[in-house]
Write a protein that binds this DNA or RNA. Structure first.
Length: 434
RNA sequence: UCCCGUGUAGCUCAGUCGGUAGAGCAAGUGGCUGUUAACCACUGGGUCGCAAGUUCGAGUCUUGCCGCGGGAGCCA
């Protein structure tokens, strides 16, 4: 007998109706009433109720139904029947049941648990329907990202994980031994993308990023995934158009492909359906005025804090674009604006509902002399950036790009309180296991 | 790094004024042919985070340490 998946039943139940089918999976939950056992079978593609009736099976099979415990792996043989009470429209009338591996005292019961306990059992927590939904959204979001860049003729260029020095001087890096030398785990592939853009025109990288900041908030991980496109000859305005178009595309893709998952997560879809062009665009100083109008006393010149971002984004119904931050609070490679030398040609996109910055980027400094001065101003070791400076010597161009943090984006789309559930095995200040 | 909170059964928590350690769920046994976090009855289950101190007596008070949670700064 051919084994089928629960997803086959969800997609094409009619063709299996009345037939004897074979399923393999794990016991999600069990209820019992007299001569009936209701087994919720989970196979990774869905959950289906399998009904064992004493009158239909041998004593041995009925005994197995009694013995099977939560998360035991099992094989079920039964007849598919339509049932209006079932969330997927079908259930299985069991003929035979075989326990493949008996699970003793599965730690995660269907009742309340605290976050710490669940995180300690992350390897098992992944089996729950809520975590399954979140990671399915992550999967679809990543699919959307790759598809967007493929459709728009970008080339995927992988950036190195080991790097010789800081991309940006301000943040903390993870230092690792590299034979007799030291190396650092990457905190951005961007500098490498600038080199790649001058070889391929439109490029992007997608990989893990490491930040050794001692941040202990719902928005921070020490290891997270970032996608970073870079386009040669693009200026800030074209970069903003790209970021906007990209964000609309990926959100719409997830909305179209993850209805069930967002329903399980009880996500209000209205704010996501609002993610349509154009997004409000604010100059940094306009954003500062807006913050003061909204009742905060924000001094021009500094970066926005968590509360500032929350208050600002709550004034709009879709993501907002803030450009031209003061040069001195931005990375050394940000291009100085020709008409406003105190400001950088950079862009942040803030997600609505207080989710904060999900995209950060801008135009790169293309002038050799300005760049080398900027490296000095940021007290960075000039020799480490020799290859990067070469890009300004051999056919320099305007160049712009941005980075999108996957976990923050998933948290926003799923409406989650914390980014730790958006990555299979989170790495945080106080957590390196499992 | 700083601020706040918390640590009691496998899990989630209660424990009053310092006076014999509690509940619900889970687990085990029994009952019931339609359960959706099933229900009913019974049973077992404790290094009260660790260490020291105060006291006739500490889960409770004091000090230190550790773990965890939330937040800030910084960032995606």
């Amino acid at each position: 007998m051919k084994r089928i998946y629960i997803s086959d039943i969800k997609k094409n139940g009619k063709s299996f109706e009345g037939q004897n089918i074979l399923l393999k999976g794990w016991l999600y939950n069990k209820r019992h009433k007299g001569k009936l056992y209701f087994l919720q079978l989970r196979d990774g593609t869905g959950i289906i109720q399998c009904v064992v009736f004493k009158g239909d099976v041998t004593d041995e099979v009925f005994d197995q139904a009694d013995k099977v415990t939560q998360e035991s792996s099992l094989e079920i043989n039964g007849t598919l029947k339509e049932d209006t009470r079932s969330p997927i429209g079908y259930e299985i009338s069991v003929n035979n049941l075989k326990i493949l591996s008996h699970a003793e005292n599965y730690p995660i019961s269907p009742k309340d648990h605290g976050v710490a306990f669940l995180m300690d059992h992350r390897h098992l927590w992944l089996r729950s329907s809520r975590q399954h939904a979140i990671l399915s959204v992550r999967n679809q979001l990543i699919t959307a990202i790759r598809q967007y860049f493929n459709e728009n003729d970008f080339t995927l260029i992988d950036a190195p994980i080991f790097t010789p020095a800081a991309c940006e001087g301000t943040t903390t890096l993870f230092e690792v031994g590299y034979f007799d030398d030291k190396a650092y785990l990457t905190q951005s592939g961007q500098l490498y993308m600038e080199a790649a853009a001058k070889a391929f025109g439109k490029v992007y990288c997608f990989g893990p990023t490491f930040r050794a900041e001692k941040s202990k908030t719902r928005r921070h991980l020490t290891e997270f995934w970032m996608v970073e496109p870079e386009v040669a000859f693009n200026r800030l305005e074209e970069n903003i158009d790209l970021a906007e178009d990209f964000l609309v595309y990926i959100v719409n893709y997830v909305l179209a492909n993850c209805r069930k998952e967002l329903e399980i997560l009880e996500r209000n879809l209205a704010p996501l359906e609002n993610v349509q062009k154009p997004f409000p665009r604010l100059h940094y100083e306009e954003a500062v005025s807006k913050l003061n109008e909204l009742g905060l006393s924000f001094q021009s010149g500094g970066d926005f804090g968590a509360e500032d971002e929350t208050v600002l984004t709550q004034a709009y119904d879709r993501p907002i674009i803030v450009t031209h931050f003061p040069r001195k609070i931005k990375a050394f490679y940000m291009k100085q604006d020709e008409n406003q030398p105190e400001y950088a040609r950079c862009v942040d996109i803030l997600a609505p509902e207080g989710y904060g910055e999900i995209i950060g980027g801008g135009e790169r400094e293309d002038n050799y002399d300005v760049l080398i001065q900027s490296i000095k101003d940021h007290s960075l070791p000039e020799e480490a950036f020799k290859w990067y400076l070469d890009l300004r010597k051999y056919g320099t161009t305007h160049s712009a790009g941005f980075g999108l943090g996957i976990e923050r984006c998933v948290a926003w789309i799923c409406g989650l309180h914390h980014v730790r559930e958006t990555i299979p095995f989170p790495r945080m200040l106080e957590r390196l296991t499992p």
